[in-house]
Design a binder for these strands. Structure first.
Lengths: 219, 219
DNA sequence: TAATGTTTGAAACAGGCGTTTTATATGGAG
DNA sequence: CTCCATATAAAACGCCTGTTTCAAACATTA
């Protein structure tokens, strides 16, 4: 067998370690040690550590975008698309696609890391490779929330993106607290279901009359 | 003058660099070089890099918590406290307190970093030092949203925490986009004002009848 | 002024990092 | 079988990291 399972073993191990400790905090020696492959294998198969990080993301995002683009094809033809429908499609696609590979929570954590840390190459990579799909989505979202001023919608999208990524990315820690306090075994699907009404309500929140200024509200 | 401005110079520089590049990505040599102090000064004055990171946070959080605890004293005596009032107090305290020091956006970015990366010592530190204040706040929040099941409120708190921290922490990048697309010069105060109705609506979103499960919603 | 405790400065330390190199296997094609 | 491209292995490279050391400078108190 040419191209043995070395590549897959590296990807699996790197993915887990990145999610657990972050990118900079995870060394190639730790990865290759745990994956039981030679240290040089990463540079041989991927070229560099940066490229390995991108490969870890691509393994998740490529199948997701493929599927999500198909859904978008359908939705773009649908005339009376509602916000709930659009968000539900996004949620179900997110939940259903990566079931074959590792867990969704791992990927969400990676996404959160990519957003906050390593703002350089990773953000550029995500923008270049998946920006078009994101643009199609926001276009539909605009259609569903036509009463919203563009700037307001822009910020709300990022509020909700934050809610999702942030919660998911610290899911493990939060799940422990929730389990001990409310003896609830929250699976990621349950969390997505909890998010849906919240995000919908947030997007539909009343818009302040004029460019808001906090000091005026208190006076 | 004993205890010259070396400590302050280190804190200022470290704060800015941490916010810009992250904790692991910022070396003591970069900090001390830019601050024009000796390399050994960090270990002399703070003990270690970890302690320096915590000191950067403490400089923001200690005054904030002091002020916020005073507000909580007042609110806990107030009988008919509403969600809007509670959130407004939180928002105004957040905005008003750190005005003397560096900018609020820097601190928000630090908070986002602390939450996602360096999950070990930093999370423990924040919990130990500021957990009590956070607990007082959540207690009032429970009082304001009494119709919400505990578990639901728990998750919604973290959704909203995510929305705030996440947006603030990537504010610089987002502000550039917003400025070019909607020629809007968003200050952090405006953003907080935008957040208020969104967070309120999100907390008040309808609660699914039973422990939600996404698959059932689609079927 | 002399002595003392505190702060700086310059250099070195030990160790980890990503990456490269060189050599050795491995496995299928001519 | 021989050849050749591909893959693994072990070692070394140069660099950068946080931390420590020790002497010099400083400010403070007696």
């Amino acid at each position: 067998m040419a191209q043995s399972d070395t590549v897959v073993r590296i990807l699996d191990t790197a993915e887990a370690l990145f999610a657990e400790k972050g990118f900079a905090e995870t060394s190639l020696r730790t990865i290759t040690g745990k994956a039981k492959v030679n240290l040089a294998a990463v540079n041989y198969h991927f070229g560099s550590k940066k490229a390995l990080i991108q490969a870890v993301f691509a393994r998740y995002l490529d199948p997701f975008c493929e599927q999500f683009n198909r859904e978008l094809d359908r939705l773009e033809k649908q005339p009376g698309l509602t916000l709930e429908e659009l968000l539900t499609v996004l949620a179900t696609t997110t939940v259903s696609v990566p079931a074959s590979k590792g867990s969704l929570s791992v990927f969400m954590r990676l996404l959160g890391l990519a957003y906050t840390q390593a703002q350089g190459h990773m953000r550029r990579y995500l923008q270049e490779h998946y920006g078009k799909t994101f643009f199609r989505f926001t276009n539909l979202l605009k259609q569903c929330t036509s009463e919203l001023p563009d700037a307001e919608r822009f910020w709300r999208i990022h509020f909700m993106l934050g809610a999702v990524v942030f919660t998911m990315s610290s899911l493990d820690a939060l799940r422990d607290i929730a389990a001990s306090d409310y003896d609830e075994k929250t699976r990621i699907r349950d969390l997505v279901a909890r998010l849906l009404p919240v995000v919908t309500a947030a997007m539909n929140a009343p818009v302040p009359e004029q460019p808001p200024r906090l000091s005026e509200q208190v006076a």
